[in-house]
């Protein structure tokens, strides 16, 4: 079987006391489009363990993470190999619902640690203060001119969803921006 390489397979994870950067490859990602007021939306919410979040910029976590992408659009994220598509399809039945596997579209970079907000703020215009962008918030925005989906998690952790073709650039940028938060010699060029 052919070897499967993630977009950041050559990226060496960075780990320091205040900041950790690593790729989480091959997560299952499903783009879901459905009328939020429909019966199908409620059924899918039940199947995923939590109602689809309807407040802009929020996400829920149960069997899978569900990120708000638009008024009738969500990104459902599960573990590698998790057959979310089948779960959602079964719940949706024959209703008018768009279900697309977009797992290969983006890879995920985990940015964790007390310095994560400072690091992301180098290239992101959003207010990332925990009061505004705490756990459970997500946003589609630009990070260092690359389109990303940001999701805030507990303990100053972030998941940065970036398109596969931009991942190498963004990882390089993150390493460069992180230099001041890492002990000397931590960052080795790829």
């Amino acid at each position: 079987m052919a070897e499967r390489l993630s977009p950041l397979a050559r990226f060496t994870p960075v780990s320091a006391d205040d900041l950790r950067i690593a790729e989480i490859p091959f997560l299952t990602q499903i783009n879901l489009r459905v009328d939020p007021k429909s019966r199908a939306a409620a059924d899918i919410g039940v199947a995923l363990g939590a109602p689809l979040p309807t407040e802009p910029g929020t996400c829920t976590s149960a069997d899978a993470d569900v990120l708000w992408m638009g008024p009738d659009e969500w990104l459902v994220v599960g573990a590698r190999g998790h057959d979310l598509e089948a779960t959602i399809r079964a719940a949706a039945g024959t209703a008018h619902v768009g279900i697309t596997d977009v797992s290969a579209q983006r890879t995920v970079v985990a940015v964790d640690g007390p310095r994560s907000r400072d690091l992301l703020a180098h290239g992101c215009a959003l207010d990332l203060h925990p009061r505004v962008f705490g756990p459970g918030r997500c946003a589609q925005t630009m990070l260092a001119r690359a389109q990303v989906v940001l999701a805030a998690r507990e303990d100053d952790g972030f998941r940065v969803f970036v398109r596969s073709s931009f991942a190498g650039y963004l990882a390089d940028w993150l390493l460069d921006a992180a230099a001041e938060y890492l002990p000397e010699g931590t960052v080795t060029s790829r």
């Binding site: 008024p71 959003l126 925005t141």
Partner: peptide, 10 residues
Amino acid sequence: PWCGPRDEAE
């Protein structure tokens, strides 16, 4: 109207 105030570049 959905995401709140954002930069023009978006």
